[in-house]
Simulated scan of single mutants.
Amino acid sequence: MSGKPLLYYFDGRGKMESIRWLLAAAGVEFDEVYLTTREQYEKLLRDGDLLFQQVPMVEMDGMKLVQSNAIFTYIADKYNLHGKDLKERVMIETYNDGLRDLMTMIMILPFLSQEEKQKQLDAIQRKSIDRYLPVYEKALANVEFLVGNKLSCADVLLLEATLMLEEKWPTILTNFPKLQAFQGRMKAIPNISKFLQPGSQRKPPPDEKYVNTVKEVLSHLFS
Rank of each mutant, 00 (worst) to 15 (best):
S2Q: 11
G3R: 06
P5N: 12
L7W: 08
Y9H: 07
E17K: 01
A25W: 08
E32N: 05
E32R: 01
L35E: 08
T36S: 09
R38G: 05
Y41V: 00
K43Y: 11
K43G: 01
L44N: 09
L45P: 00
R46M: 12
L51R: 10
F52H: 15
Q53N: 15
V55S: 03
V58I: 12
V58R: 08
E59M: 04
K64N: 15
Q67H: 14
Q67V: 08
S68V: 10
I71S: 10
Y74S: 07
K78M: 04
Y79Q: 11
K84D: 15
K87V: 10
R89K: 15
V90K: 08
I92A: 13
L99Q: 15
L109S: 08
L112P: 07
Q114C: 01
E116K: 13
K117N: 04
K119E: 12
D122T: 11
I124M: 02
D130T: 13
P134I: 11
L146K: 11
A154G: 11
A161I: 05
E167M: 04
W169C: 04
W169Y: 15
P170N: 07
T174I: 00
T174L: 11
F182V: 06
A188V: 00
P190R: 09
I192G: 03
L196R: 02
P205Y: 02
P205C: 00
D207L: 04
K209I: 04
Y210P: 03
V211P: 05
N212A: 14
E216M: 01
E216W: 01
L218G: 05
S219R: 15
S223C: 02
